[in-house]
Design a protein around this nucleic acid. Structure first.
Lengths: 340, 340
DNA sequence: AGAGCGTTCCAAAGCGCTTTGGCTGACTTG
DNA sequence: CAAGTCAGCCAAAGCGCTTTGGAACGCTCT
């Protein structure tokens, strides 16, 4: 059943039927109703390929997926996707993942824009001066960044959580509990979120007249193993920290293991707070000692990004609106006063 | 630059240019070369929307993503995706994720097929008598299942690992080490892979004249918490197992925690083997006691599925070819002889 | 020389939609 | 009452590609 047949059936022109269906004003209400009815009754669905050729709109949102033998997709991605899907599903929006060589994403961005394969894209975890943002900005395709960049000479729309605030609060709590030696096990230092978190911790320390020494900060890819190594190095130091703030639950697993291996205890010898993006399969309350966290559902962020992307596509949202979500500090058993 | 302009430029018809570019035989080699040259020089790229309308082929592969508030996407998905992307990238194949209500995926499958949105789909972890397989099979779209179903009255192409064999080997090893009380912490019992794994364990036990008692098998969703609970229930039983085979690394985390909480040790009191899909961020060799595993890279599977999907799209692969990959049994410190 | 054939190209008809630029007829306006 | 306005509809021209059904040409063969 295509437009031609449907319009013939109604003794109307394709023009009128098309307009009736797409809510254009130049068609009488009665005709519109008649058309809508017939369309529903015959299960007419406009052919997306045809519509796409005619309009240049695809009804899909895009994501360029960096791949390569040495590239690991962040496990958070799947949760973000869940949220995105939650929204997209109810709006018949599809998501197209365009795998790209991690060393040359630009080509892929250009391709999907030139081909008009998607109506909008989202960009995850932009780094400082992220080239992808500059690129999509000049290419003129609607987009939203999940996370922020720094040092760009233009504004852009984004959704981010208050990483700095979250880690500021976490550090402040630890300081209030009397800890004098704080350490930070952070994500890769090239990531903006890691920079913000470090900033938060530094700000809290500064407020108490302290600083974060070189030796008390580790920036690594967020794996269990790296968490372990970082923690060992910190704890085996001459002046080991009495409290650690850690950028992910997965790394926290490694920290806990290191603490055990060294015969120490949480929170007796070490207080620990980690950031929790809320995984269904690994929950901080189930850590050997329930883990205090700065919590923010990455899933909700996914849904919100999808929603805003849809709004941008339909022109409801414009400009470089930034949105920063507050982060909860959830205190559980893993923090205590500094050891004497 | 479109076909019309290019052909005008060459003083050829659109037909000829199109055929030259697409490798049809009815064009002379000289003309083809001339066309190819000009196309490359002017950076001509056929408009995919137009091509798609004309041919009905989209150059994309599809995946229906079940979503919903209560639905969690399997974290393995992201690794599978990595592999898929590795292959797809080099072939300019995109992947479209169509989010669907988890309770009604059928509508979405019908839509993407009717709309010819994708040239092929893959279906993950089919369950026994999986309706999706029956559906795509009748809809006639090329597909490949990652995993197997059971009890279907037709054959279908799939890629699976030898779950039964893997768990058979794991159980056999434990039996050889003198363990008399084996337990299995499995994935959801409705999943085919869980059924196969159970079958493998039972077969090994049967070969030694033993059986797997009701109390010694747990089938749960694969989270850390469920691993913990299952292990506690097993180990606090009157006749606790001396060895556990476990369906995932994430659950194994929970098992290890339970063992600790109960004041037991691995492998002194309990031997443990888990299945490892190979995550970059959680490695069995880094468990408190290095974990023995049945190992199979889900990432490689993703790449292979993409490859076969591409082959099916281009007609190079046909029929219901099944492919079963062997699984490595990697022995590490977590297994030992049965306690006396 | 004329029929027959294979090669190489072309014009035009799709694919199914949106959108431009009118056309009609009824209704207001001075 | 003529001119202007406006709602409501339509024909046809795109969008840029593939593919069908020839046509033209040069060749071989009888």
């Amino acid at each position: 059943m295509n437009l031609k047949q449907l319009s013939h059936m109604l003794s109307l022109s394709q023009t009128t039927v098309s307009r009736a269906l797409n809510g254009y004003p130049e068609v009488s209400e009665e005709t519109r109703r008649r058309v809508m009815d017939a369309a529903k009754r015959h299960g007419y669905r406009p052919n997306p390929s045809a519509r796409r050729l005619a309009t240049g709109k695809s009804g899909m949102i895009g994501y360029v997926l960096p791949t390569g033998a040495a590239v690991d997709i962040d496990p958070h991605f799947v949760e973000f996707l869940s949220g995105l899907g939650d929204y997209a599903r109810s709006h018949e929006l599809d998501l197209v993942l365009s795998p790209a060589d991690a060393d040359d994403e630009e080509t892929t961005y250009r391709r999907i824009v030139a081909n008009r394969q998607v109506d909008a894209v989202y960009i995850s975890s932009p780094r400082p001066a992220d080239r992808r943002l500059a690129l999509v900005n000049t290419l003129g395709i609607p987009f939203i960044a999940h996370g922020r960049s720094e040092g760009l000479d233009f504004d852009y729309p984004y959704l981010d959580i208050d990483n700095e605030g979250a880690f500021h609060e976490a550090a402040r709590l630890l300081l209030q509990l009397g800890h004098k030696r704080l350490a930070l096990i952070n994500g890769n230092e090239r990531e903006t979120f890691a920079i913000h978190r470090e900033r938060g911790v530094r700000r809290a320390l500064a407020a108490s007249g302290m600083t974060l020494g070189e030796r008390h900060i580790r920036s690594v890819t967020m794996t269990e193993e790296n968490g372990y190594r970082a923690a060992r190095r910190l704890l085996e130091d001459g002046e080991p920290p009495t409290a650690i703030v850690c950028s992910s639950l997965i790394m926290a697993l490694g920290v806990v293991r290191a603490v055990r291996d060294l015969g120490l205890t949480i929170p007796g010898d070490l207080s620990l707070i980690a950031h929790d993006d809320v995984f269904p399969w690994l929950r901080p309350e189930n850590f050997p000692v329930p883990l205090s966290t700065t919590r923010s559902s990455i899933r909700l962020a996914g849904a919100r990004v999808a929603e805003r992307l849809a709004a941008r596509i339909s022109g409801l949202e414009e400009g470089a609106r930034g949105e920063v979500w507050p982060v909860d500090l959830v205190v559980r058993g893993s923090v205590a006063g500094a050891p004497v």
